[in-house]
């Protein structure tokens, strides 16, 4: 008999946290100066928008779909935030709300016409990019004061990014994992027919999940502008890949509704730190993306090993 600590389920659940802990230990060992308030703040503040985008992707993954437009959408939000939200807040707010509505509509369209989400969202990525270019043809704009203030907040003792990440993880965890309707939302990923047979509307569930993805994508774009203070249509092009990678690193499955908000946040932080780690190792930034891919494959391979061990039991 194996002890419960080595049970496949436990192993799978702690894998993201263990990877993060190992990575942090390695960074502290390589570069002890990072083990400080400023050091952590610098390394982690870019993790906030990525974590929010990862959460957005997780909502879509939870209902067995994939969003290839999240990066372009975050770019769109960033452009709106850096321009209209500063110059004419009502217009800016309307544009952001419209973004969420479009996401909800996509959920409905994909469900009603039974469309492959990757083709639809790939098309949408061009729409978002195009609109962003129309709003902000050249990099520029400024951040609304309050967002900049929030993102540069100097919290006592614990750096702001850590607090923010914790708050995001807890809020989403409570909403999705602990509420009564949250269990219906997740159930729709696990066994859609059963949810339908029990009398729930799958259309409504898809719309809610896509709208939630729109909300968190919006938060990601706003947070990003708070950090960079100027916008660009291509500012978040990498977020599509990072969000998928982050969600998977965090233990989310591609199908079956098995997701973990805390894991997704941890996955996003791990990916952000992996960048710092490579630069501390003096590895050329050329290999940054490749390292993301390698980490992803490594984690998936570990998971495949655990699953195979489970089958053998």
């Amino acid at each position: 008999m194996t002890s419960t600590l080595l049970a496949p389920r436990t192993l799978r659940a702690i894998l993201p946290a263990v990877s993060l802990a190992l990575l942090l230990a390695a960074i502290f060992w390589l570069q002890p100066r990072t083990m400080s308030y400023t050091g952590l703040n610098l390394m982690l503040n870019l993790a906030i928008p990525i974590a929010l985008a990862t959460i957005a992707q997780m909502f879509v993954l939870c209902v067995n779909e994939l969003d290839l437009s999240i990066g372009a959408y975050v770019g769109y939000v960033a452009c709106v935030t850096a321009t209209w939200l500063v110059e004419s807040p009502p217009l800016g707010i309307a544009a952001l709300m419209a973004g969420i509505l479009v996401y909800a509509g996509l959920g409905a369209l994909i469900h009603l016409r039974n469309l492959p989400s990757i083709v639809v969202t790939l098309g949408m990525s061009f729409v978002w990019l195009g609109v962003a270019v129309l709003i902000l043809p050249r990099p520029g704009g400024t951040s609304p004061e309050w967002i900049r203030w929030l993102m540069k907040l100097h919290t006592p003792v614990v750096p702001f990014p850590i607090i923010a990440a914790t708050v995001i993880a807890i809020v989403v965890h409570v909403a999705l994992m602990r509420t009564a309707y949250g269990s219906i939302l997740r159930g729709a990923g696990g066994n859609p027919r059963a949810i339908e047979r029990a009398g729930w509307s799958l259309l409504k569930i898809k719309v809610v999940m896509f709208a939630l993805a729109g909300v968190f994508g919006m938060l990601a774009g706003m947070a990003l502008i708070g950090l960079t203070t100027s916008g660009d249509a291509n500012i978040a092009a990498r977020y599509t890949l990072l969000s998928i990678a982050g969600a998977i690193l965090g233990g989310c499955e591609f199908v079956g509704g098995r997701v973990s908000p805390a894991g997704a946040v941890i996955g996003a932080i791990t990916l952000t730190l992996a960048g710092s780690f490579l630069s501390f190792l003096r590895i050329s930034p050329d290999w940054q993306i490749g390292a993301t891919g390698a980490i992803l494959i490594l984690v998936l391979a570990l998971r495949a090993l655990i699953n195979r061990a489970e089958e053998r039991q």
Binding site: S125, V127, L129, G130, V131, V133, L134, P137
Partner: peptide, 8 residues
């Protein structure tokens, strides 16, 4: 911009 939007 318009080109991207229409293609999508």
């Amino acid at each position: 911009g318009i080109r991207y939007v229409l293609t999508g």
